[in-house]
């Protein structure tokens, strides 16, 4: 009966907090995500400086009352860059997650529930997509179609669809053999009702877990594209860009660039992890 997988984040959360924090996790996670999203949306109104303007302060100045997050090597205000920096990266990540989940999940549900040769062929296609290196595909798509939220999101999404498919499929294969699915058939439920009322709720927590990883990965891929010059123009404020270039400045002792941008990326991933863990516990009242 127990359908458990090992999740490092769950292990960490539970060893610190113990169980029974499902609701608290969800609230905390959503608060973080809401905070980051709101901050990005209202960035033009709250940022103290123009994030792209060079020489607002001295180059590489550590955090100080006038520049609480310090400045980077071009003397740009890090606080403003952090406030602005989530706009693109979060949007790309959200869009990518949305695209893959809304394609991967229904395909996984239907294909594995129906089974047979359809399932075999779909699995084969998914496996071949899965084996494709994500960054190279992203590079291809971006260099052909150019940089835009949709293009980057698509580039990331395509490679991630199989992850959703696999997780959904492996769970559906075992759940569809359970007696309560057969009992639902007996109760007159049709395929769609069985899929969405009986099977989907049981796997939603795993989907959210994949979405979390997907989200974090999207952020990293976006940052990676920035790094090889296919992403945004380097002077635009972006956590990914700052994290990438901040590395070089670390050598000269300016830890604040990488710390602030890294923290933001971490915070975004943590928010999603909290939501997923909270969800897992609430959905599965009898985790033992």
């Amino acid at each position: 009966m127990k359908r458990e997988y090992f999740s490092p984040s769950r292990f960490i959360f539970y060893s610190i907090l113990g169980r029974g924090y499902g609701r608290a996790f969800i609230v905390a996670g959503f608060s973080i995500i809401a905070f980051l999203s709101t901050m990005s949306i209202i960035a033009p109104f709250i940022s103290p400086h123009d994030p792209t303007k060079i020489g607002i302060g001295p180059s590489n100045s550590p955090p100080s009352p006038s520049f609480p997050f310090g400045t980077d090597q071009y003397g740009r205000d890090m606080l403003s860059r952090i406030i602005w920096g989530g706009r693109f990266i979060l949007l790309v990540a959200f869009t990518a997650v949305l695209i893959c989940a809304s394609i991967g999940v229904p395909i996984g549900l239907l294909s594995s529930y129906i089974g047979g040769n359809l399932d075999r062929s779909v699995s084969l296609i998914m496996d071949s997509v899965y084996s494709f290196p994500s960054l190279i595909l992203a590079v291809m798509i971006i260099s052909i179609y150019g940089t835009s939220v949709i293009n980057e999101a698509l580039a990331i999404a395509v490679v991630y669809i199989p992850s959703y498919f696999r997780v959904v499929r492996s769970q559906v294969l075992s759940i569809k053999e359970l007696q309560y699915v057969e009992a639902a058939k007996c109760s007159g439920a049709n395929t769609l009702s069985i899929l969405f009322k009986h099977i989907l709720p049981s796997i939603i927590s795993s989907i959210i877990v994949v979405a979390t990883v997907n989200f974090a990965d999207s952020i990293l891929t976006t940052a990676g594209l920035d790094f090889i010059g296919l992403g945004l123009p380097v002077n635009l404020p972006d956590w990914g860009i700052d994290l990438t270039y901040g590395r070089f400045e670390l050598a000269s002792g300016s830890w604040w660039v990488i710390l602030s941008s890294g923290t933001m990326i971490l915070l975004a991933a943590l928010g999603f992890s909290l939501i997923s863990e909270g969800y897992a516990e609430r959905q599965n009242p009898k985790i033992r």
């Binding site: 009966m1 007696q179 309560y180």
Partner: peptide, 15 residues
């Protein structure tokens, strides 16, 4: 025609 399933633990949706 209805069916009473064998295992009451798995024939009820836990959610």
């Amino acid at each position: 025609a209805q069916y009473i399933f064998q295992d009451p633990n798995s024939s009820l949706n836990p959610r």
